[in-house]
Design a binder for these strands. Structure first.
Lengths: 197, 197, 197, 197
DNA sequence: CATGAATGAGGCTTCATTCAT
DNA sequence: CATGAATGAAGCCTCATTCAT
């Protein structure tokens, strides 16, 4: 049955692509990506018909991975504050620990090669996060603002924070915490009784 | 002090570059930019030694313009809240009204062609905004957070908001206002009984 | 003497090749030919060591088939005029009914991949036709012209005629007849009795 | 005003293309054509936007040249027989003297890259020949056959003859003459008692 | 012997930059 | 100083052929 298309190889290509795109941007030659993945020039194209295909796949993967990381180990029984705090922290720690993926994603996000469909798929992959935020939004000061807007704001704050965490790994925890509090001030319900807010 | 013929051409090239980069990304051929600027192929290189030079110039220009727009007409005598509110509104309205410049800037910002030096210069161009934010930060809940972090957070919120304003021009004003309030919650001093703060 | 499985596949490949070469020319990928023949990529090369081999085989086959079609059911007892008329008609009707084979052959005939040897073999396959024409030639106005030249002229007229038959199927019979008469005028002995010829 | 596109260079490219296509077929690499034309790789594309463009241009040129050669020095005052005889001879001598052009044209003629439009243009370029043949046809035994058919038949005979002339240059004149007589038998009015027809 | 993934040599084309005019 | 043709280095992708399974 001949060598069957191996996931390993496919993943090697994706990894190489992330590394090289992070370093050189989207103009990274497919030939270089292939070489770094220990794969021949042409083999890349048996796994991804087109450079654009590879890019789109990468984009979806990275977004999906982000979503999964954010929701991993979510304490389902806890209250909203605890859940969102957990999510925030998972999300940012993961992102801060994956600077190449982040850089690659930054390049991909602005590319015209990424189709509307891919963006759609990626958005779905983040639905879990959206659900949580929705709960937060509904009872707080931004209850009249469209979820998408709220979500994007939160995302923007997260991205910015991650940049700082990467630049200053020693303070990563603190930055994450600081930003979470800022977000909570932005979105969360004022918690009256407890003074430790 | 009329702008020289040479300046005119430089500007024509930059304008064309913005338009085309917004549409096609950074891979926009210099030849196309030149044609759109009514300048010959080769002449472009007498104004910008290199494509990268043009890109860096553009980056700096756009950042500078942003900064200028934000601070235009700042009510120097008013209180901080009024000043920042004014700045926020100027900034976002200008940005929302310049979608091509924004798209071009989005491409430029992630490019590896933009040197650290250019980023430095651009940062300086936004110093005026930074000063305002500094005042805000110093007295609010993020007083212990580095200015740069605060600044970037604010910027991130602003960018996200502009995207929404562009997508939904009818609600632009409202979105700007909503976001401003969110930012204020994030950064500003809690305003208690007395409104004259 | 059933044809072996192997023969079946060879034939499937050849059929597919004819179809695809007719449609796309000689640049038709072997992989596509294989797929259309329901044969794997690599298997094609166990039947034909080389793409060039396949092409040469095809060329010989098609030429041979042409020759066979021309001579099928030849009325051995009739006079030369009747025999040649019959041959002409068989030949052209077959060719006109096989446009894909003709197109494929047209591509093959000009290809540099077809070796002199293949052309030689193909020529032999048309020997039967040649014999008939030889008789015609020997007694007519072109009796001093080399057979090969006469043969090729006749062939050229036939090919041209077939093109018209394909373009105008309704008039196919008539075109064939017209051309036959033209050929006869070119080559045949003047037939005395009838003045209106 | 910079170097202006030179006809010389354009012609050098075409010449090189004819030579190489004659030798290697249409798969001749553009890079090789460029090199043979003493032109850089990329320069070829300032003269012909596309390889297909070059091919089409070449096709039209060669057809046009053929037509011009056939009609050069036509004795306008002479009778039809003399005119056609002259045309035939001009045509065939020219073609026999240009074997590379012929081979190139043979490749081009079957190519799918040659557009219907190019074929149309080429056909027009041969209109002069067509007019002559029309006169011949109208009064002879093929008077009821479409001109296009007659024209193509004549062309087919001519091509075949040229092949023989090239193979046997010593007999070129004779072959041409032989073929002309054959064509005349095919198409021409029977010339009876009176020779002055 | 079949399968189809792997290989890697090109092919066409684009484009930043140079340079003759 | 402008013009735009010329250069030639890549880049993406295709495809005949090989070879592990």
């Amino acid at each position: 049955m001949a060598r069957s298309k191996s996931d390993d190889k496919q993943n090697a290509i994706k990894s190489a692509a992330i590394r090289i795109i992070a370093a050189q941007g989207l103009s990274a030659p497919t030939a270089l990506i292939a070489r770094q993945a220990d794969v021949s020039n042409g083999a890349l194209f048996t796994y991804f018909a087109t450079k654009a295909d590879l890019l789109n796949q990468l984009y979806i993967d990275l977004k999906t991975e982000t979503g999964a990381a954010a929701l991993a180990g979510l304490p389902a029984k806890s209250d909203l504050h605890a859940q969102i705090s957990h999510m925030w922290s998972s999300w940012l720690m993961w992102a801060a620990a994956s600077p190449e993926k982040r850089r690659a994603l930054a390049h991909l996000s602005v590319s015209d090669e990424i189709t509307a469909e891919s963006r759609q798929v990626a958005h779905h992959a983040l639905a879990g996060i959206g659900d949580l935020i929705e709960k937060l939004r509904a009872s707080g000061p931004m209850r009249d603002v469209p979820l998408r807007f709220v979500f994007d704001l939160m995302n923007a704050v997260a991205e910015t924070t991650v940049d700082f965490m990467i630049k200053d790994p020693a303070g990563a925890q603190a930055h994450s915490q600081t930003a979470f509090e800022a977000v909570w001030r932005m979105l969360g319900r004022r918690r009256l009784a407890k003074p430790n807010d």
